[in-house]
Design a protein around this nucleic acid. Structure first.
Lengths: 209, 209
DNA sequence: CATAAAATTAAACATTTGTTTGATTTATTC
DNA sequence: GAATAAATCAAACAAATGTTTAATTTTATG
């Protein structure tokens, strides 16, 4: 099924609404109004509300895939530099698609839609497998420690990023930061998260020198 | 408003349902059936579905509060040992109340119910303030580093725990672990998470020796 | 331009929703 | 034990829900 501009427009609006009101909390009428199309169009284009959700996931998940084949082969950069690149790429993707990540989070908590859960599990495994490849390279070069719990490590990364996004307001309040624009804040957050997670990964991965 | 056994029974069932189906995805009929009471009883006892949710939060949030006044005054244990105790206590509470934490997560992502968002923000600030006190003690004793981002640190803890809970199945699959009972797995998870987070906190808080 | 296909619409459909009602049963109080 | 209050119930309510229909408009095709 190839998606037209109309499809994508509806998906975009649905994504925003699902993120702020939840799947069940969002009505087809909400989506139709936000997308400026007739109520019947949603069913006409996607079949049903559930199928719209699944199409949204199919569409977004593919964008979320990390690609490191070329990165892995590159001999000019160190294993940990590769890990750093992967961290940066992950943070960029999440900050770029915050709405979708919120939906993913809630869907994973509730595990209601089996198709959606499968998508999320797959991307989780994809991330972990990439990281495993990177870690194994570092281990073979005797730079990284043995017995690394890859998925625990990944969950520290994904968890930290998720929490920082979901608690932006609380973070600002606690640190009494001045109000800046959303994009400006996100840019700063990207740097903060990158440095923080890299520091954690460094101590967990590398041998003390 | 003092809660009777009947109140608590309905709250408990509602909690389970909200966690697995979401707030909007759960109907009053669902709750009534699960609690084995008449449909009208929910409104009779709580006023409305929304007020039931808020009562649930008021009830659970108070249980979640960390208490460290006595801990802070205790001179016989080191600042980092205090941090370790706090980490253990947090993990225990979350693992004990996984359903509620899932609800918190989704509610914080959606920020629809202002009363609920306020409760969650308060507990977040409560945790951060406790940690700030502990960190400041360690800093005064020249054991902890300066310029610690308390809330970033806390979000790494809460995020890691959350992700490990939400991705239990994926974790097991990735590590091809054998199926054990839920409680058995949680006990093991508690240890794993405790060690992991303490290690992270140690490197982020203490000066290298 | 005529015809077929695709897109769009308002209206209707049957369910499901949260909440209320008014009667009935149970518990409490004097 | 009568009177009052609290708890429970089935039924009803209007509003909202996802989906479909059948008519109309727009677009594409020869």
């Amino acid at each position: 099924m190839t998606l037209t501009d109309k499809h994508n427009h509806i998906i975009e609006k649905a994504e925003e609404l699902f993120a702020t009101k939840g799947y069940s909390g969002t009505t087809i009428r909400d989506i139709a109004k936000a997308a400026n199309v007739n109520l019947a169009m949603v069913s006409y284009y996607f079949g049903s509300k559930e199928k719209l959700m699944e199409t949204l996931f199919r569409e977004r998940i593919s964008l979320m895939q990390l690609k490191i084949e070329t990165l892995l082969k590159n001999e000019t950069i160190s294993p940990f530099q590769k890990v750093e690149i992967m961290i940066d790429e992950y943070i960029s993707k999440v900050l770029d698609k915050q709405s979708f990540y919120k939906i993913m989070l809630c869907e994973m908590a509730q595990r209601k839609n089996k198709v959606v859960v499968k998508f999320i599990s797959e991307i989780k495994l994809n991330y972990a497998n990439m990281m495993r490849d990177l870690v194994e390279e570092g281990q073979q070069k005797k730079i990284f420690k043995k017995h690394i719990d890859i998925m625990l490590l990944m969950n520290t990364m994904t968890g930290t990023v998720t929490q920082m996004i979901m608690n932006k307001e609380v973070y600002r309040e606690f640190n009494s930061l001045k109000k800046v624009s959303e994009t400006e804040y996100d840019l700063w957050l990207k740097k903060l998260l990158g440095d923080h997670i890299k520091k954690i990964f460094k101590t967990l991965l590398e041998y003390e020198s």
